[in-house]
């Protein structure tokens, strides 16, 4: 498959580059055609492929679940309803175990969205690695990454979404004063060490969303990388490695979606816990 590239390094770097739209230094807007272009655009650019696939898969998720939710009945459920209820029940069980029975209208839908959406985005990893980029290349699109979760922007975007909720609930449940006091007095409750506590707590606070996002990104990026490396083998030998890795990857994509959800629940639980010292 790597025949149309000059060398395998180019193949790899091509498969790891997003389709980026942004503003060049000369003020023009357009798609980046090389890594240099992307570097030139800097922050004011957007990964169109990531946005497209994540949005598309989110719509797939909502479409399936809305279909089920529209036709729900309390009697004997159909296949689709069964599946959706299974997901909902799974999410609810996990919430009950970690978050407890506090009334919160947000955490359930949030966890369900994370679980199914992240799973679907991870699932794109199982699409044979060259199909979609190749088709896109035929259509004149220079880069096309299909797995949104291998883009660190996507995972950090979600983890910071959870992070903002954590801040919101901290302020709402504990109040700004108690929240601020918690940053100062923990872990060493002595006034002379407040500055030290503050540094620790702030690092701790920001380490959570970053590790949350990077964990998912790292796992999927590494998995994608291995698929790319396998794709460098001669075509008759690829199946020997890609099949076992794909089967193993089924576990990973489900597990990573689950871990992302559980961590979100855990962070929100910590934000709700008032008397925990």
């Amino acid at each position: 498959m790597a025949t149309s590239y000059e060398n395998s390094a180019e193949y790899i770097s091509h498969h790891l580059t997003n389709l980026t739209y942004g503003r060049f230094e000369n003020g023009e807007w357009g798609f980046a055609h090389s890594a240099d272009d992307i570097a030139e655009m800097g922050f004011w650019s957007i990964n169109v492929d990531t946005m497209f696939w994540s949005f598309f898969l989110g719509c797939v998720f909502l479409f399936i679940f809305t279909m089920a939710a529209r036709k729900v009945e309390a009697g004997v459920p159909g296949h689709l309803q069964n599946f959706c209820e299974m997901c909902v029940e799974f999410v609810e069980d996990n919430i009950t175990q970690v978050f407890g029975n506090r009334p919160n209208a947000l955490i359930g839908p949030l966890s369900l969205t994370i679980l199914v959406w992240v799973f679907l985005m991870n699932l794109m990893d199982l699409v044979p690695i060259d199909w979609i980029p190749y088709a896109a290349g035929m259509a004149g699109i220079p880069y096309f990454k299909v797995v949104p979760t291998t883009d660190v922007n996507a995972t950090l975007g979600m983890s910071f979404g959870v992070f903002f909720l954590v801040i919101y609930y901290n302020l709402k449940i504990k109040g700004p004063i108690k929240f601020g006091a918690g940053l100062l007095t923990h872990p060493i409750p002595h006034w002379s060490m407040y500055w030290f506590n503050f540094i620790l707590e702030v690092v701790d606070l920001f380490a959570k969303p970053i590790s949350h996002g990077l964990r998912l990104f790292g796992n999927l990026y590494a998995g994608e990388m291995i698929f790319i490396l396998i794709a460098l083998l001669p075509f008759y030998a690829q199946w020997a490695l890609s099949l076992p890795w794909a089967i193993f990857h089924i576990l990973i994509i489900a597990l990573q979606a689950f871990v992302f959800m559980i961590l979100a629940i855990v962070f929100l639980t910590q934000a709700h816990a008032v008397d925990e010292h």
Partner: peptide
């Protein structure tokens, strides 16, 4: 692998989906 507006876009679509 560079941070750009995609993060914000993803955050927005995430919020919308939720």
């Amino acid at each position: 692998m560079n941070i750009n507006l995609t993060m914000l876009g993803q955050l927005i679509s995430f919020s919308l989906f939720v």
